[in-house]
Design a protein around this nucleic acid. Structure first.
Length: 155
DNA sequence: GCCAACGTTGGC
DNA sequence: GCCAACGTTGGC
């Protein structure tokens, strides 16, 4: 089992939106970055767990956790001209984009801001904290995952 | 295949 | 809203 961190802008889709989705599950569509596509298609497996990170908001930070319930499959929104994620370069014959399904696990007992994450020496290698990192999905090590769990058990 | 121009992300 | 970082595009 592997651990991940998924970013989403809460104005687009927040952890509360996930909580209130049917079966607390959603398809994580709209990824249009090749590195992240490769992770979705090849690496992320059913049973993997992920942090739900709120980006481009005040303050950004980790809000909760979720679980992968369906591994990589075609992102249909790329084929839909009405979708804001439409990509004419992707076709069913030669699909470019993939998605996974995720299910809500829980909200953290408290929100862990990016500022707080940055203070932790143990987390300094997280891709999330590297300057200029823009990937919307990144790997989290077991050590980082467990450390962040301890962080929100405190207080 | 280089690289300038352009678009997007996302913290601040 | 600014702007640094960085991915993508397209002319050559």
């Amino acid at each position: 089992m592997q651990y991940w961190l998924f970013k989403s802008e809460p104005t687009t889709f927040s952890i509360d939106d996930l909580m209130h989705s049917p079966k607390q599950t959603t398809h994580w569509e709209g990824v249009r970055n090749y590195q992240v596509r490769n992770m979705l298609r090849d690496e992320i497996k059913v049973g993997d767990q992920a942090f739900f990170y709120h980006s481009n908001c005040n303050p950004p930070g980790i809000a909760g956790t979720m679980e992968i319930v369906k591994a990589g499959y075609l992102d249909e929104s790329a084929f839909d001209p009405q979708s804001k994620y439409f990509d004419p370069k992707s076709s069913r014959a030669k699909p470019l984009w993939y998605q996974v399904n995720v299910r809500f696990l829980k909200k953290l007992t408290r929100y862990i801001s990016l500022e707080e994450l940055k203070k932790q020496p143990l987390l300094k290698n997280m891709p999330l904290l590297r300057q200029g990192n823009r990937l919307s999905v990144t790997k989290v090590t077991k050590e980082e995952w467990e450390f962040i769990y301890k962080l929100f058990r405190a207080n």
